[in-house]
């Protein structure tokens, strides 16, 4: 394995983008996954808050109207190669907020699914997904990073 591939496999910086929703997934990522019980770091995934440092962008939540521009901006800030992991049902299909509507018919305030906005590499469904599944999702994004030129 080349040095490039080894280095990319051995150090992954993940960044979390909260994009609205109920923040159940955010807490599962930021707190449960980093907690000593699950400990993301032992799998060589380091958590960061800086898009310039990140490789993997974890997006959770419906894309709220005001967060549309920041999401595009932060995605463009991440230097290539990069992978996007969508956590939870919200970025995948809008969850109840998009599909369980009453009289209003169409909820125009949310912009899920995430595929329409930025390319998504891994989808982890669940409301919220278990921390083990999120971990697996982040790790599934690694081959794309490794194979990139």
């Amino acid at each position: 394995m080349s040095l490039k591939a080894r280095s990319r496999r051995n150090a992954i910086h993940a960044m979390l983008f909260y994009s609205g929703g109920c923040n159940g997934c955010d807490i599962e990522v930021a707190n449960a996954l980093l907690s000593p019980r699950y400990d993301l770091e032992q799998y060589k995934v380091l958590f960061t808050w800086n898009p310039r440092e990140a490789d993997v962008l974890i997006v959770s939540g419906i894309i709220a109207w005001q967060l549309l521009e920041p999401l595009k901006k932060i995605y463009s800030m991440i230097p290539n190669p990069k992978a996007v992991v969508a956590i939870g049902s919200c970025p995948i299909n809008g969850n109840v907020y998009k599909n369980l509507v009453g009289d209003i018919g169409v909820n125009e305030d949310i912009f899920a699914p995430l595929d329409n906005i930025i390319p998504v590499d891994v989808k982890v469904p669940g409301c919220p997904p278990r921390p083990e599944d999120i971990l697996e999702g982040v790790v599934k994004g690694v081959p794309k990073l490794v194979e990139a030129p």
């Binding site: 051995n10 150090a11 000593p36 400990d39 770091e41 032992q42 060589k44 380091l46």
Partner: peptide, 9 residues
């Protein structure tokens, strides 16, 4: 916690 491997960070 277990923490990252020594060479990673």
């Amino acid at each position: 916690r277990i923490g990252p491997p020594i060479l990673t960070p």
